[in-house]
Design a binder for these strands. Structure first.
Lengths: 199, 199, 199, 199
DNA sequence: TATGAATGAGATTTCATTCAT
DNA sequence: CATGAATGAAATCTCATTCAT
C-alpha cells in the first residue's frame, strides 16, 4: 500500500513527541529529572521504553526539550504587554495569574528542578541563559517604555533583577513555607513592585 | 590496652561525623545529592565507604544532616540582631555579607539542591519547614521590635515573606544569570527593603 | 492494472536482494556482522528496515548469503585455470591480483569476520566448509594436472593446505602488520609456492 | 580489627583479576567478544556482575587485557630460542608444540576473535601491533643469528612475514577445514620452512 | 511492494548497602 | 574502629523483529 502523506505523518510524530514531553513533565514534577526513570516516562506516556528513543536521542534531550518548552511559554506570556499603552498599570493589574503559578507547588517544583539541573549541567544552563537573556531584553523594553523618566541600562538591569528576584523568590517560598496567604502577600507585593518601577 | 575515656571517644566520633558532613557538603555542592556517590563522599572524607555507615544510617541521613546543619547556621547568623537597639538600620547596614553568600554560585547551588529535594522528599521538607518556622518567629520578632508602629501578624508575615522572597530570588538569579552586578543591585535592594520594612 | 509478467517481477526482486547484499557487505566490512544494525543496513541499501525482511528471513540469513556469495566468487576466480595447459606457470604468473586482494585491509576484514563467525556459528561453518571442499577438489585437480609426477591424495592435500595457509596467512598479516611490502613479499612468495608445487 | 597486610590483599586482588580473565577467555573463545555478555562472564567467573567492575573499568578493558596477555605468552614462548646455538635446527625440531596450538580450534577461535576485533577497534589494533613489532624484532634476530650468510633487512622482513603467514594460515585453516592431518602437514611444512630460512 | 512505528528483551554500567575480617 | 570486597537491583540505551497501513 502507498505510504501516507508526509504532513499526516509529521503531525502524528509531533503528537507522539508531545505525548512524551507531557508525560515527562508530570514525572519530573513528581520525582525530579534523575528520580524519574525512562521506564516511568514510558509508562506515563503509554509507550514502550525503546520507542521513546525514536523521538529523543536520550534522556538528556528530553530534559532539554522540557526546559526549552517551559521557558518559551514563559517568554510568550509576557509578549503581549509590549503592545500595552499603560504598561506598568497593566503589569500590576495582571499580577494575579503569574502569582498563582509561582505559588503552585507543582509548577514551582519543576522550576526548581530546572534550576538545580542548571547549576550543574552545562547544556541546561546554556538553554536557561539564552531564554533568560531574551526575557531580560523584553522586560527591559517594557521598563523603558513604561517609565516616566529616561533610565540608564544599569537602572533597567537592577529593576529587572529585583522584580525577577521577587518572582523567583515567591516560587521558592511556595516550596518551603507550609502555606502562603496569597491575598495578604499581594497586598504588599503590588506596592513594592510599584516602588521599584517608579524608583 | 585500657579503654579510652568515653568523653574522648565521643569527641573523636563527633569529629569524624563532621569530617563526613564537610566532605558531603563539598560533593553535594558540585554534583548534587543524587550525583554524588557514597564512594565519592568516602574519598573526599578520607574514609572507607563502609565506615561512613558507622556514623550515618544511610545516604538519606547524610542529606538530612547537611540540610539541618545548613539551616542551623542560617538561623544562628541572625540571632545577634535580636540584641540590637536599632534593628532595621543594622539589618540594612549588614546586608553585604549575606548578599555575597546568596550571589555565590557554590552556595546557591547547595541551597537549590536542598529546595529541589524538599520538593519531593517528605523528610527533607519537614526539616526545612521546621527551621523555616523558627526563622519566621525570629525575624517576626525583629520586625515587631524594629517597627515604629504596631504590626498585625498578617502584616509581619507578608513583610517576612517578601523580604525572604527577595533573598531567595537573588540566589536563584545567581544561578541562571551569567553575572549580576552586586553593587548596582544593592543600590536598589536597600531602598526596596527599607520600603517594605517601613510600609 | 494488469499484473506484470512474472519474469520481470523476479528480476526486480533479485536486483533488490543484491542491493541489500552489497549494502550489507559494505557495512559488515566496516563494522562487522554484530556491529552492523539492521537500521544501518537499511539506510545503506536505501530501503526501509521492514522491507529487508521481504527478501531475507532475518539478519542471520543475510550473513549466510554474504558468506556464500563471497565464497562463490572465490571459487569462480580459479575455475579458468582448469583449462590452462601450463597450470603452475599460469598460477605463479597470475599471483599479483589475488595478493592485492589478500593484502587489502577492507577485503581482509570481511574474510576475518566470516572466519570469526564460522568459529562459533554452526550454519556459517557448514557453508564455509562446503565451499572449502569444492575449492579443495578444484585445486586438487589443478595440482594433479600440473604436476610432473603422479601425486598421492595426501600429497595433494598437504600441498593444497600449505599454499592455502600461505594465502590466508598473508591476509591475517594485512590486518595486524602496519604495512607489508608487497613486492618484497612476492619475491620470496613465488619461489616458495614453486617449491611446494614441485616438492 | 586491623586491616590485612598489603601484600596479601594485592595477591588476592590479582587472583580475582585472573579469575575474571580466565573466565573471559573461556567465554570469548565460545561466543566471541561481543557474543559474551557481562552476565555470562560473571557467572563463569563465579562473581557478581557489579564486582567485575572493581577489577576492570569496563568490558573493553577486559578485552584489552585478554589480548595483551595472549600476546605476552606468545612472545615469551619464543624467547628461549635466542640462546640456542643451532637456531634453525632447534626451530624446526620444536615445531610440534606450536603447531598443536595453531591447529587447536579453541586456541584458533580466540586468535581469530582478536584479529576480527583488531580490524575495527583502534585500541586493540594498537596492542596487537605493539606486540607484533616486538615479535618481529625477536624473530628478526633469530633469523640473523641462524643464517649462514648475511641478510638485508628486507630479506629478514620477507622471511619473517612468510613464516608468520604460514603459521597464521594454519590457524585459519584449523577453523574452516573439517580436519587437518597434522603429521601429513608437518611432513611438507618442515621442508618448506627450511626452504624459506635458507633461501 | 513498501514503510517505519512500535515492542520488549537484553546489554553495559552504576551504586547504596552489607559484612567478613 | 576500620576496610573494601561483594552483591544485586535498577538505570540507560540498543536492536532484531513484527505489523498495521
Amino acid at each position: 500500500m502507498a505510504p501516507k502523506p508526509i504532513a499526516v505523518e509529521q503531525e502524528r510524530a509531533s503528537k507522539r513527541r508531545n505525548q512524551v514531553l507531557e508525560a515527562a513533565a508530570r514525572c519530573f514534577r513528581l520525582y525530579g529529572f534523575h528520580g524519574s526513570s525512562m521506564a516511568q516516562l514510558a509508562k506515563e506516556a503509554g509507550m514502550s521504553v525503546g520507542h521513546i528513543y525514536h523521538y529523543f536521542e536520550n534522556k538528556e534531550a528530553i530534559i532539554d526539550a522540557i526546559v526549552q518548552k517551559d521557558l518559551d511559554e514563559w517568554l510568550a506570556s509576557i509578549q503581549h504587554l509590549l503592545n500595552s499603552s499603560n504598561i506598568f498599570e497593566d503589569m500590576l493589574a495582571q499580577l494575579d495569574d503569574p502569582i498563582r503559578d509561582w505559588l503552585d507547588p507543582d509548577y514551582a517544583a519543576l522550576q526548581i528542578e530546572i534550576l538545580a539541573e542548571a547549576a550543574r549541567n552545562a547544556k541546561v544552563v546554556a538553554i536557561v541563559r539564552a531564554s533568560h537573556d531574551k526575557i531580560r531584553d523584553t522586560v527591559g523594553e517594557l521598563l523603558r517604555k513604561g517609565s516616566s523618566r529616561p533610565l540608564t541600562q544599569t537602572e533597567i538591569d537592577s529593576k529587572f533583577d529585583l522584580i525577577g528576584a521577587l518572582c523567583d523568590g515567591l516560587m521558592v517560598r511556595a516550596i518551603h513555607s507550609g502555606t502562603l496567604d496569597r491575598d495578604n502577600l499581594l497586598a504588599l507585593l503590588r506596592p513594592t513592585i510599584r516602588f521599584i518601577l517608579e524608583y
